[in-house]
Design a protein around this nucleic acid. Structure first.
Lengths: 254, 254
DNA sequence: GCGCTGGTTCGGCAATGTCAAACCAAGTTC
DNA sequence: GAACTTGGTTTGACATTGCCGAACCAGCGC
């Protein structure tokens, strides 16, 4: 891996920092966190501001992410083949199952949601597109991890945080779970991220045979489960939908 | 305005370029467009790739935007006060009017959509959040332009492109229209961006009295209009909703 | 008034990124 | 199948660039 341009690396570090914390950050906060002199950070921030990647609060002088990033994020989605190919299938999956549908891909050992269809009742729901979810506690994530052993190893190194009592937080436990996922071709999470909420997902394969994404549904346990596992009919719908998308991406046409 | 860091400016230029074109771009394309040597561009692209802002297609070697931008874009939304404050009001506006609701703010003399509530029937609709709309051909845009004369002047300089026969494309015409908008406190567009589609919008004011955004509805002409203008009841709902958001942002509590 | 804290400015030094030229792999053409 | 094109990648020398520490200034709290 060759040399990288220092100022851009640092600028990216600032943006990553700002996108982590929800509250605005000041020059010294950032400088401290990144171990850089504040003069330097100020210079970086100024140019980031000029190109619209950060904005400065007029009153407090503190910085936050800028509007240009929103537009670029949505442009990313437009060019994302996984998402565009999956659009139709995810809509029909949502109506068939009556649940919310999400499509995710791996990013930094987490699940990045690239598409989200609301549950087809009129209840208020917040859009998850762009969110990063923990990989070891979601159906989407388990599917992806099962086919990316290298990423899984990264996770083991950093430790598996527990979100509920049901979260799989031991290396052994997750290894066994992923093995099962590889065998059966789908994954579920039962209250492992949020109490009373379950999800299940299946892999999306591209023309090279790589698992480039996962597609699944999320919803309340009482609707999704039976006999301690996901309802068979829902599972079939999910797997069929994921397979359809895979076929459209050019995977072997079963 | 001081000097900016060259490499970051250039990197931002690359990203802007990539977010414009939908198809992937190669090193020489970018180098040509930006007037830079291709070696330089390659170095920039490599570091942008390392930080996840661009991705390289394994087969063609061409570049596209990266996933990190999607997450940052959504983080921007989380921190955006205009949007968070407007969340509740926009939902209720959508149910009251039965139309799709959009909230926008100015960005580079265009309207950046920061929130979008679908029309409350089950029809398929695509999310517009993150899109940039032309300011002179939408209700949202006109409201914003009316209170940002400097930006309006920028537009005049660059020329007003016409999207339909109804688009206001002369300087004189737009000046008169904006004057009307300032007087009446709301703006409409009638088939000026898309044939058969209309929109109307009202300003959102912050605690300093600045127009920081606009809120409005979009829909088919036959539903939104009567007697050659927006339906009075819908207009009232829109204006009330925008005023509610303004009040929540700390504008004078009328 | 004094001492914080925190954002901004400045100028000298050298590390840093830029550039042109060379390289290499894949297609195309004849 | 050789010569040519196209386009992504590598290299190294040069001087521009941006980094850094210290100084500056404004707003607060005591």
């Amino acid at each position: 891996m060759g040399r990288a341009i220092q100022s851009i690396e640092r600028a990216a570090g600032i943006l990553r920092l700002l996108s982590g914390r929800t509250r605005r950050l000041g020059v010294v906060d950032i400088a401290g966190e990144l171990g850089l002199p504040k003069g330097t950070v100020h210079g970086l921030l100024r140019t980031l501001q000029q190109v619209g990647f950060v904005e400065q609060d007029a009153e407090t002088g503190k910085y936050q992410l800028g509007a240009a990033l929103l537009h670029m994020g949505s442009s990313y989605l437009d060019g994302n083949e996984l998402r565009t190919r999956a659009l139709n299938w995810s809509d029909s999956l949502a109506t068939r199952t009556g649940e919310a549908v999400r499509i995710g891909t791996l990013h930094d050992a987490q699940v990045l949601i690239v598409h989200h269809v609301f549950r087809p009742d009129d209840s208020l729901q917040t859009l998850d597109v762009g969110s990063l979810l923990p990989a070891h506690a979601t159906g989407l994530g388990k599917v992806l991890l099962a086919h990316h052993p290298y990423v899984a190893n990264e996770l083991y190194r950093d430790g598996l945080s527990a979100f509920t009592p049901a979260t799989i937080s031991s290396r052994k436990g997750l290894e066994r779970e992923l093995e099962k996922v590889r065998e059966q071709g789908w994954a579920a999470d039962i209250g492992e991220l949020v109490q009373g909420q379950a999800s299940c997902a299946a892999p999306i394969i591209d023309r090279r045979g790589l698992t480039v994404g996962a597609m699944g549904i999320v919803g309340a346990c009482e609707r999704l489960l039976e006999d301690g596992g996901p309802r068979g009919d829902l599972l079939t719908y999910v797997r069929e939908a994921a397979r359809s998308v895979s076929r459209e991406l050019g995977a072997i046409p079963w």
